[in-house]
């Protein structure tokens, strides 16, 4: 792990239940992981996610490369959001969710026994479908992450982070004069860029975006898409989108998910049909189902 030491820190050395602070993996394990670490940020191996008895996704094998934008597309109920939420262990918040198989993050199993979900989420940021700023000031929204992680405590340090994050999210010029006013007074598009700035503020390695533009108008959507392209040199981005044009416009790679209906039980399970370079998915996909979907002849 030469390019960044970050991912290694998510493992608790003392296994039992500590959820505090940074712990580093034992050095022997580190070398073992290093030698065959692929250039992938994420790699899922036979990933299955269940909600209670219901299997939401089946046997997903997907890779996400560094500094690329990977789009997850597919019809409703195909499990693309579920897969996305495995990348920062957000499914942990759902009582009945259970994850089977492996989700490797720089070669390290995120669902391994001694991985701390809190540490994972400090490295893997998430932007949600609906903008969800805290009912706090713009400043405090951005400063929230750095404050809770202990990254910065002094107002001056926080101010630097806030400005940098807002600039990266192309929001600084619009809000620099009203940092102390409530974030709830912003427009939807501004709120979503604020949420991106808030995620960036903790200096993550990856940004996960779960249909980030679905509640925004076309102009705000365009701004977010431009923003994604601008910041992809620094971050790895995985985006779930319903909008195929959006996937085609912004992503480098596209993964197409579909729904498989069990004839007997009528259970609907999400499967990964194929993942490839975006141009290929939208021009000459390997699978018929992908072609039918991207050409609008979805059956």
């Amino acid at each position: 792990m030469t390019e960044s030491g970050k991912p290694m820190n998510i493992v608790n050395e003392n296994v039992v239940g500590s959820d505090s602070g940074l712990q580093t993996i034992a050095s022997s394990e580190r070398t073992e992981v290093d030698t065959d670490t692929p250039p992938f940020v994420f790699e899922t191996i036979d990933l299955n996610v269940y909600y209670g008895d219901f299997r939401a996704v089946r046997d997903v094998n997907l890779t996400v490369a560094k500094n690329e934008i990977t789009a997850l597309i597919g019809p409703s109920g195909c499990g693309k959001s579920t897969v996305l939420r495995c990348f920062d262990r957000m499914n942990d918040l759902i009582e009945t969710a259970r994850v089977d198989g492996r989700v490797l993050y720089h070669g390290l199993d995120l669902y391994g026994p001694d991985v701390d979900a809190v540490e994972v989420r400090r490295r893997v940021g998430m932007v949600f479908q609906k903008p969800n700023p805290f009912p706090k000031s713009i400043f405090d929204n951005i400063a929230y992450g750095p404050r809770i992680s202990g990254m910065a405590k002094k107002k001056a340090d926080l101010a630097v982070i806030v400005e940098r994050s807002l600039r990266k999210a192309a929001l600084w010029d619009e809000v620099k004069d009203r940092l102390s006013s409530s974030a709830l007074g912003m427009s939807g598009g501004q709120q979503q860029r604020l949420c991106i700035a808030r995620a960036i503020a903790v200096d993550p390695d990856v940004l996960l975006m779960d249909e980030p533009c679905s509640s925004l108008d076309p102009i705000a959507t365009t701004r977010i898409e431009e923003l994604m392209k601008e910041i992809k040199d620094e971050y790895t981005i995985v985006i779930v989108t319903h909008n195929m044009q959006q996937a085609a416009r912004v992503s480098d790679r596209t993964a197409f998910f579909s729904v498989e209906v069990n004839e007997q039980s009528d259970a609907r399970t999400g499967i990964l049909v194929e993942a490839d370079a975006t141009e290929k998915i939208f021009s000459t996909p390997a699978d018929d189902r992908t072609e039918r979907y991207v050409t609008g002849r979805f059956g």
Binding site: E119, F128, F134, P135, Y144, R198
Partner: peptide, 27 residues
């Protein structure tokens, strides 16, 4: 307090106690 705020806080790497005291209780 909306679930979305709990997710936002957790997503930023907040421990449950941090989410409770910094987001849920103020809200």
């Amino acid at each position: 307090v909306p679930h979305a705020l709990r997710e936002a806080s957790s997503g930023l790497g907040a421990k449950r106690s941090q989410t409770t005291f910094r987001v849920i209780i103020p809200g």
